[in-house]
């Protein structure tokens, strides 16, 4: 399936425009909705909606590690993550100091719409920093690997894990150099892998095998993804989850226009998967759509 077909035959009939905009433009609200229905999401520490709130913000209330995100951003833009304290402020993963002044400016940039679509005014939020010490194959993780589950009309159609590499600088986007690992839906076992557009079998950094691994929390991951998709009100979504060290599967993001690279990671076309969805593990229940 290519971009043209995805738009015309999948997104357009499945995802109402207003609903896509609602989900994409307010991650804060989407997160609240999921949370209120018991779907695990990162804990929200604070939300800043206006410059006034920013001026009065109590920086001392923030923990050592957190993620500062725009509510309406896309493609991971405008996200700042701290991992520890550093003097008066915090420090990033690479050790770069992030002082209050710098963070306050970043919040201001978010509020001004620097990271939202079409420069629309936006909301900034601080949330729990998720961690995954190991990726789904059990190797030590560099950065934050995630699991993406594509849900179409209440059924899981495809899934993959995105594992960061040195080349991707800890980021989990495939076009930035992360490895994509396809997952057999019924078994929760890794099947194929892709790196830089070509099939591979081992992690490019560690050389450890990527295939045949049993994904932890598999049934739970699928059930949570299905619930999140149902609550989003979208008929076709890509649910991004992280398998957090402390909390297990946690929903990070809901995508109304999930990318097509997942097909390469699974060596299967989405057209076939949509027409003939794979069997789900026992205990994972599809939901009905109207």
């Amino acid at each position: 399936m290519g971009l043209n077909r995805r738009e015309l035959e999948v997104i357009s009939p499945c995802n109402r425009r207003e609903q896509m905009i609602t989900v994409a433009q307010s991650k804060v609200n989407t997160k609240r909705l999921l949370e209120s229905h018991g779907v695990p999401v990162p804990t929200t520490y604070a939300v800043i909606e206006t410059r006034d709130e920013l001026a009065r913000f109590d920086w001392g209330s923030l923990p050592d590690a957190f993620a500062l995100k725009p509510s309406g951003g896309g493609r991971g833009c405008g996200i700042v993550v701290t991992v520890s304290r550093s003097g008066d402020g915090w420090a990033s993963f690479s050790g770069r100091p992030l002082g209050r002044r710098e963070l306050a400016f970043h919040v201001l940039a978010i509020l001004s719409g620097d990271f939202s679509r079409e420069g629309r005014r936006d909301v900034a939020h601080f949330e729990q920093r998720m961690t995954s010490a190991v990726d789904i194959t059990g190797s030590p993780a560099r950065g934050l690997p995630d699991v993406r589950v594509i849900v179409h009309k209440g059924r899981v159609v495809m899934a993959m894990s995105r594992i960061p590499t040195i080349a991707s600088d800890g980021k989990a986007n495939l076009h930035q150099g992360a490895v994509g690992v396809g997952i057999d839906i019924a078994l929760g076992v890794t099947t194929h892998a892709v790196h830089d557009g070509a099939p591979c079998t081992v992690h490019p950094d560690s050389g450890r095998g990527l295939l045949g691994a049993k994904v932890p929390y598999w049934n739970e991951t699928l059930s949570i993804a299905l619930r999140a998709a149902e609550l989003s009100g979208l008929g076709y979504t890509g649910i991004d989850l992280v398998l957090d060290d402390a909390r297990g599967p946690v929903v990070l993001e809901i995508n109304a226009r999930p990318g097509l690279n997942i097909q390469i990671a699974n060596l299967t076309g989405l057209r076939a998967a949509l027409a003939n969805p794979p069997a789900m593990p026992t205990g994972v229940v599809a939901y009905g759509t109207h």
């Binding site: 971009l3 043209n4 076309g269």
Partner: peptide
Amino acid sequence: GRYTGLRLTERLRFRALASA
């Protein structure tokens, strides 16, 4: 605007699938 097939660049991008 009604064409749903693969674009030329997508044929290249998904070439691994074609031989699957």
